[in-house]
Design a protein around this nucleic acid. Sequence first.
RNA 1: GGAUAGGUGGCAGAGUGGUCAUGCGUGGGACUGCAGAUCCCAUCUAUUAGGGUUCGAAUCCCUACCUAUCCUCCA
Length: 464
Amino acid sequence: MKVYDSMAKEIISLNLSKDEVVKVFVCGPTVQDNFHVGHARTYIFFDSLVKYLRVRGYSVFYLQNITDIDDKIINRANEEGVDYIEVSEKFTSEYMQLMNLLHIDSVNFYARATLHIPEIINQISELVQKGYAYETSDGVYFRVSKFNDFGRLSGQNMDALKSGSRVDLNEQKSDPRDFVIWKKYKPGEPFWESPWGKGRPGWHIEDTAITEKYFGPTYHIHGSGTDLIFPHHEAEIAIERSISGSPKLADYWIHSAMININDEKMSKSLKNYVKIREVLVDYWPEELRYALLNAQFKTSINFSPEILQEARQNVNQISILYRKLSLKGRNYKNNLGENAKIKVLENILDKNIDFRQLFTEVLSMVGEWNRNLDTMNDPEVTEALQTIYWVDSFTNIVRRGSGVSSVKGAVEILLSLRKEMRSRKEFGIADGIRADLKDLGIYIEDKGEETIWWTSEEKGSDKN
RNA sequence: GGAUAGGUGGCAGAGUGGUCAUGCGUGGGACUGCAGAUCCCAUCUAUUAGGGUUCGAAUCCCUACCUAUCCUCCA
């Protein structure tokens, strides 16, 4: 299995062992505001990546942090005249709900920063002791000049950073590149006691304190969106390696590209974002997942109604075929691993975890299965079902209508009535039944003497 | 200015030297009582520009131009 690694800046082999737990850390959100499609992309991608690793037999522990103390959270709380905890609780809960809606269920543990203050203070103390950090009147800062690998991941030139710095010059830092790891208390702000007085943690050190606690000084995969490479990941590397002395923090660095809108990055500060909630009014989670996985992870996606519409088409095509196949046979969970189609798909993914290429190949298989649907024998049906089931097990893009709902009996009575009407050429009545069922989310399809049906609610603009 | 990733049809997007895949869209056809689903055919005269290497370049080299992200908080 290979993947583009941001540190190596090329596609390299992912050498992971199946005999030990694979430790994956992905930077979670700051719980300060509504979540947008950009967040969705990153977390859907890593969800599918981790699930795929598991499908391939790796035992993965997927850790994510939640930044629940931060300037922006405090500012928002002040604006609204509430305690910061109200803000962070509200959006933490919203985040969890969205993850649930989007089928993002691969994370083993969400670690909140405010529940790791002792670990953070320990790290700062160590850094101060070793001379990597110094105290000023407003906080404790990391001394970047003591860590000579700073800038390697992001390709930043140390001197250029120094001179061309856009960083605040007002602070009492001894070097403009130095970053804050402890912020001293100002009136009205939440605080924790520390050897440097009341205060709260800086952002970068939250993650290292958390990963060190659960993973130790090094782990296997570190992921997030590309926008966190600098300075956040440089800072994490500097902090943890200064403490541990290890030559690396993570074996692999995987960064997913941004979501753009009108060719510009979607972001809170530009106010050009589309909320996940808004998308889910008109589109199913499976459709959003498809749209966001339907690109190489290193390629930015220009978000538009067109990509959602395309996703809807393809999700429908795969889902409807899946339904038809499952009416033909149900032993698709057997004999996984002997499936030649799955082998083909594995080979595609193993080149660079490219879900778009996976989808392209799946769609061509779907075309073939549709062509042969009437003549497929049992092993072929099983193979097809297994394959779609396998793909769905880590992508979650198949919409599963059900033919065994609680209304099954009633539907079948109506269908036999409709059959009778059709044989009497009472097409008005027959079509009326079909239309009424459709309004209830029950789709039927005539094929010769047979009529198959499934349930599938409609969403958004397609309704009517 | 530096770093990174790119510039292929209406859109999306494969393709590291030899008739420019594929998907969406659009048009037509088959099937159907009609639909739906599905299939077939077509369409869109597409490789940023200019040089070079080559029998031959989207693909290799050079130059220019352009786009996005990062170089401040951000997934």
